[in-house]
Nucleic acid binder design. Structure first.
Lengths: 212, 212
DNA sequence: GGTCAAGATGACCGAGCGGTCATTTTCACG
DNA sequence: CGTGAAAATGACCGCTCGGTCATCTTGACC
């Protein structure tokens, strides 16, 4: 696809990079952003120095993997824009989103604290909000969700729904479905009273210091 | 009251303990459970060794402070049981709960991952679920919330609502009110369809290894 | 098959962590 | 006021972390 092998690349380097990305993806998913670079190297069957040859810092490696996840979800949202039933499309998007969070601890941590992430990751989160807004706008027009709900609300709700179910994850891996239904019911209610304090378009990621 | 000075206690020890608890409460609230014991000691104006004389481990210190917060919230729930309007009482309880989470990072982290906490903390979380269930039961009877919502749902929702608003905290400190309203609207909906997979009474905190 | 730039390696570094302990200071009590 | 037990102190320990670098290995190319 886009990340193909350039001419003259060494075969072992290409293979090691694939091993590294696979191991890092799994390690971050299982153990969160706190997993050590040493453990990632071990899981990939590589030396620690090799990991740092491929990615200059842990932050870079994490960003590469989070961007992949965010872009995939944004792609899902874009694809769902063409569905006829906007309410069903929105439900499908949210299902995908919460499932992705439930399967990946690092993804939760990154989406839950966007202000202290890499600028590229923050931009990708904003793209996701835009894609979600497009989906939500159609649902609003069709009267499927209340007027004052935005795409940013939807993205934020993904994190909230997952967090609600997180303490039950070990015993009821599907518990998030319960809280997704609850949220969808709340979103459906015709304006019983406008919600307070509408969020900005996208997330206010630029106000916070870069932190490195 | 219960933690009064016993006879023969040295005055400086009593004063230092109060300084320590105050500093630790503020430090955990501002910077989460990752704050170091060294920083807590510094904020209290004490040496690190003194902190470990009062609490044998960081886990013990954290537990002491989290128990205080949990007990306070449980007390609020107990007091609200006597209100006439169960729906209003439930709203008041949830407002208190989300406010407490928004004001304390460590509290969020502890309530959001109860399985890896101190047994005392886990027990206190279960007490909170019980108190919330009592409140919720009355709301169910009054038809103010749907039949299939439990006290555990309510406690879990506190964490979820806060998490939803967390990325906006710096710019819109009151954003959680928006998502609390949304959740309350979802809770009000008469059984449009039962929610999937009811959670257990309390949280399944005993299945996980103690880790300590 | 020889060559050599590019890649892989793992010992090593400095920083920060939770926690310990020999020493010094403080205060309650007689 | 003198005394001794309890409390405070901060240097220190072992450990893990992200990251570096001199050294060795590999594979693309002629």
């Amino acid at each position: 696809m886009s990340e193909t092998t350039a001419a003259g690349q060494r075969a072992d380097m290409v293979r090691n990079r694939r091993l590294l990305l696979g191991a890092a993806t799994a390690a971050f998913a299982e153990r969160g952003v706190e997993v050590s670079m040493g453990e990632i190297a071990q899981r990939a069957g590589l030396a620690k120095g090799t990991v740092f040859r491929h990615f200059a810092s842990k932050e870079d490696l994490l960003a590469a993997i989070m961007l992949q996840l965010l872009d995939r979800l944004t792609g899902t949202a874009d694809r769902l824009r063409q569905a006829d039933d906007a309410a069903a499309a929105l439900r499908e998007f949210m299902t995908n989103g919460v499932e992705a969070l439930a399967a990946d601890r690092a993804f939760c941590e990154v989406v839950g604290r966007p202000s202290l992430q890499n600028p590229d990751v923050r931009a990708a989160i904003n793209h996701l909000c835009d894609a979600a807004e497009a989906l939500t706008a159609r649902a609003r027009e069709q009267g499927a969700v209340r007027d004052d709900v935005t795409g940013t609300d939807i993205v934020l709700l993904l994190g909230g729904i997952h967090q609600t179910a997180a303490p039950l994850l070990a015993d009821q891996p599907q518990a998030w479905r319960r809280y997704l239904e609850l949220a969808l019911d709340g979103l459906h209610v015709p304006n019983a009273g406008a919600l307070p304090e509408q969020p900005p378009r996208g997330l206010p990621l630029d106000g916070s210091p870069a932190t490195g």
